[in-house]
Amino acid sequence: MSKHVVVIGGGVAGLEAAGRLSREGLDVSLLEKDSITGGHLNRWFKLFPDRRDSSEVKDYLEGLTHANNVKLFTNVTIEKLNRDKDHFSVLTNDGKELIADAVVVATGFDLFKSSRKEEYGYGIYDNVITSADLEDMFRKGEITAADGTVPKKIGIVHCVGSRDEKAGNLYCSKLCCVTAVKQAIEIREHYPESTLFCFYMDMRMGGAYYEEMYREAQEVWSVNFIRGKVSEASETIDKKVVIKVEDTLAGRPLKMTLDLLILMAGMEMSEGGIKLAGLAGLKTGDNRFFEATDHHFGSNKSNVEGLFYAGTCTSPMNITETISHARAAVSEVVDYLKNS
């Protein structure tokens, strides 16, 4: 009888891990809290840096799980997760109990809830949206202000909920800078007459072809970059958004009226992950993400033997890194089951 592995979370990391584990000849159950798999891929339209359609990645991942007979359970949340001697017992909300030889946790991340930065007015001012809201607009093919008009002057705020002690997150989410550049280019492509302003504290373009995208945004798409943290937004009578920022390089405060303000929401440990950490006694770090046993050679290992992490439940990662991390988790599981 082949060994049974439970994978928790059906996003990028979970799908990749489940498909690969199954291909290794293991019996794999994949648990997903939503009705469909794919996680955040379902919300994002095009991906950086090559701007391919997110559905291509999703198709690859789901193809991998289907081809390898992964048992998929959707609309499932975990109620209990215990380790008894050499196996795990996973109790789900629909009363099923799964017995597993190993568990892969791939609970992913949640986007920072931008309404928590009240001074930016998300949920209060009509024309303040988040990067995720903008992706929805991209998918629909029309980018509009709240009153349905075409926004001409658009601002993008970096680091919303990242690198911000007041939001409780000291870390950098790593992907918002490149997302901002990608989205700025996309808007300019869509509306050549629009003007784009990115307000950043530092541009962190640390991935393959990110810096090149930044150059392209400046050179080809005339996106303006202003170094300064937006302190607050207010609303005019005609529902335009006025932001206050210091143009730190000019050394003077700057005030700007915008038709649309886009907040680059950062990544946070998912609520599901926090709940699971409590249920299974998993260690989390100061940043609330799961804490792996070693930064360098144990990034998949948890403090519970036989339970492994895959993907953004341990720290912010892009899709490339997530898939690599999931594959690494697979090799850890295989090693573990071979030796147990």
Binding site: M201, D202, R227, G228, K229, V230, S231, E232, K244, V245, E246, D247, T248, P253, L254
Partner: peptide, 10 residues
């Protein structure tokens, strides 16, 4: 980190 948030709101 010289982000300028303080000067912006001041």
């Amino acid at each position: 980190i010289e982000c300028g948030g303080c000067s912006a709101t001041c």
